[in-house]
Design a binder for these strands. Structure first.
Lengths: 335, 335
DNA sequence: TTGTTTTACTAAAGCTGTAAAGTAAAATTA
DNA sequence: TAATTTTACTTTACAGCTTTAGTAAAACAA
């Protein structure tokens, strides 16, 4: 069925290792033989079994990528960046979707590691990362994983700064009584964005009330439910900072359904700058993350580490922080 | 470094094949030894190298998936369905994004095939599928590939019917002069949706003008540009059928920016039913595809074929057509 | 006790490829 | 022409695992 170098060798009455060298452009075969081998290989439809090759070289040119969810356009864009950059460097990607499930994440790490990936890119749900690191002796780059574990490199947007510029913008617009719709309580992104947000309020001698922090999942429903809850419990809220755009969409949905005009009646600012945020019907003010670049940078970092690892160069984990950018649209414009 | 069965064998003064049998629960080892091996393997942190195992079994429990784009929520959802179902069956997935580029697609097919995937799921951009089939002797399942090549199985929504119910709904709403914003001219989905659409118009003794068909890419920009063009060239258009929701979003963007009220001034119906379509600010009427199921069904079909292939059971390509469903929202409500 | 069967292993081959070492013939040098 | 080097191969080993065949010892039957 499948053509191997042995089949080629047999056909040409050559030893299979000569065929190997001919195909790999290594010395030790005459130009004549090499050409003959090449031609025969092409004619027979030979495709190297890179798996077998990997057994010898102990590399697979394959990366494992574990992401919570690709329907959230944030991760969709990051994943696209990852896959594109990996492919440009002749790596393929095992894509795993943990669906925010800690156990699934661990299962994936084990399964994919057994497939001998050369490295991992992980957006960890909980911080099972540590386990990963101990058991897998494989280079790893995380997204937003620094706080949890600085044994391996991490890339993220500067979330403190992102929270800060979000708050600063709200304050500049004249909002004074903000609420925050956070992601899960233990999410480091959420923690840092909140931290930066509060910091700006303090710097402007404004108080921000703990009771106006609420926590949920990073999805539309959560945004919707928490908006309802917040606005019911606190009549004085004049603006909401949601920890991502998808949640902000939920907030906007609630506002729309209840005849509350975002921007006028209440300010809303999100995080990520997903595509839909720019729709004229939405016009969500948000903090942009360089999503595609995040993917690209993570891969480049990982490939570096893989290379260093192969050459036994000492590994120093790096933390890369990317700049957030304020995108002002219509959901914040009190003045 | 990495623990192999040989390391375990050496430690226990056993032959490595006894270790192999012990770990795989095959007969030929005493219960005592088996337990000892198991315990030692766990203690030493042994992880089987499934790659090496695959060399012997000639399977990798890996699928190759080639998709044009995962930021379009349609493919995001299909891909999620694929990955989830694959994982439930202990398969991993190489995800490749062709970015609607025919050559990239071919490159991917070659690259991934060399990694000995057990099967392919492909949403082909052009129909390079044929090449694939000839060179790769590997089971393949396509999304919307039947018209192009019925050598391998294909799953899709019944696009003719989808187009039909879209038109029927517009007619029922009282619209009479529709335009169609299609995808690329050679897209089979686009062709079939248009065909069904026209059919409904004919059945209702209505005429639909060829000059109101236009073609573009499946993205927001295309929808935007073509809406502008259509409405400039044809003042009488009362409704637009776009071949997917993302394009419809572009149309809605144009309408919003020009003070034209969708639903009232002009009817808009999309295709796919992506998440944002249900946002109150959007409320896009559309034809729903069972996206997640499409992914699931493709994987199940593929795994069946892989199994049959292994058992040398004759392969008959199947065509699976799923039911589209009309989702009525606010962008169509003339009456 | 001898012969047979079963048990519990070991040895070796094979999956596909790379790489290092070995060899015979051709080409070069003295 | 003989000695040396180069060329073009072949042989062998190995990557990590499975599988088949082979073997020695233990268990059993006659």
């Amino acid at each position: 069925m499948k053509v191997t170098i042995k089949d080629i060798a047999q056909k040409l009455n050559l030893n299979f290792s000569s065929v190997s060298r001919a195909l790999n452009n290594k010395p030790g075969v005459s130009e004549e033989t090499r050409k003959l081998v090449m031609k025969t290989a092409a004619k027979m439809g030979y495709r190297p079994n890179v798996i077998a090759r990997g057994l010898v070289s102990r590399t697979t040119r394959t990366l494992g990528v574990i992401i919570p969810d690709i329907i959230n356009p944030l991760f969709g864009a990051i994943t696209t960046g990852i896959i594109e950059t990996a492919n440009q460097n002749d790596y393929d990607v095992f894509l795993c979707i943990s669906n925010w499930d800690r156990n699934k994440e661990i299962d994936y790490i084990n399964a994919v590691q057994q497939k001998q990936v050369d490295g991992f890119i992980v957006k960890s749900v909980s911080d099972s990362n540590t386990i990963l690191l101990d058991t897998a002796h494989v280079p790893v780059v995380g997204y937003e994983s620094w706080a949890a574990n600085n044994q391996f490199s991490s890339v993220s947007t500067d979330n403190i700064k992102g929270g800060y510029i979000a708050a600063k913008h709200l304050i500049d617009c004249g909002y004074r009584r903000s609420a925050i719709i956070n992601g899960p309580e233990n999410s480091s992104a959420s923690i840092n964005r909140r931290k930066g947000f509060i910091q700006a309020f303090i710097e402007h001698n404004l108080k921000i009330d703990d009771s106006k922090f609420c926590f949920g999942e990073y999805d539309i429903e959560s945004g919707y439910i928490l908006a309802e809850q917040l606005l019911r419990e606190h009549k004085d809220i004049d603006s909401i900072f949601t920890n991502n755009d998808v949640m902000a969409l939920g907030v906007l949905k609630y506002l729309e359904e209840n005849g509350i005009s975002p921007g006028k009646d209440i300010g809303v600012i999100g995080f990520d700058n997903i595509g839909i945020a720019s729709m004229p019907q939405i016009q969500l003010t948000t903090v942009k993350q360089p999503k595609h670049s995040i993917g690209r940078i993570m891969v480049n970092l990982l490939l570096d580490e893989i290379k260093n690892n192969a050459e036994n160069i000492q590994h120093y984990p790096q933390r890369i922080l990317l700049e957030p950018e304020l995108i002002i649209r219509k959901t914040t414009c009190k003045k």
